[in-house]
């Protein structure tokens, strides 16, 4: 048995070479007719206005933050799931294996509930709710 990671590295190389190879082929095949007009970005046929790098909806950011928290939590769940069954089979009590994870998930759920209630995952807020929030 070889080291599996060498094989994965090999696949990564192949995975890189295939698209690069296609690019090279295309480079050989395709024509190049530079012209100013067709380089403008597409805005349904209109002349592009303004800059693209504008401020966008804050909700994207809230979602990203939530993700960071919950994604990291999966990192900590992974090892637990792996040992869970063998721990049980080796006679460790159910409470001892399950309870810590219940506490962990419980804390996360409290966090999720809080984020939910505070509108972190709510895409559109009604103007009335906004006003109420500003008022306090």
């Amino acid at each position: 048995m070889g080291n599996p990671w060498i094989a994965i590295g090999a696949l990564a190389l192949v995975g890189l070479l295939i698209p690069v190879g296609m690019m090279v082929i295309s480079k050989l095949l395709r024509p190049s007719v530079p012209e100013q007009g067709k380089r403008s970005t597409y805005e349904s046929g209109e002349v592009p206005t303004g800059d693209t790098r504008i401020r966008f909806n804050i909700q994207y950011y809230m979602v990203a933050l939530l993700f960071v928290i919950f994604d990291i939590e999966t990192v900590l769940i992974f090892p637990w799931t792996v040992i869970y069954r063998s721990a049980l089979e080796n006679g460790v009590g159910l409470t001892r294996v399950l309870a810590p994870m219940l506490v962990f998930v419980g804390i996360l759920v409290v966090g999720l509930g809080w984020a939910w209630r505070n509108g972190a995952v709510k895409w559109v807020r009604s103007p009335r709710a906004e006003k109420r929030k500003d008022a306090r």
Binding site: M1, G2, N3, I6, A7, G9, A10, L11, L13, V14, G15
Partner: peptide
């Protein structure tokens, strides 16, 4: 298979 280089060649083919 235990030689990294040899194995790499084989893995390239497999990939």
């Amino acid at each position: 298979a235990d030689d990294p280089l040899h194995f790499f060649v084989a893995a390239i083919l497999a990939s």
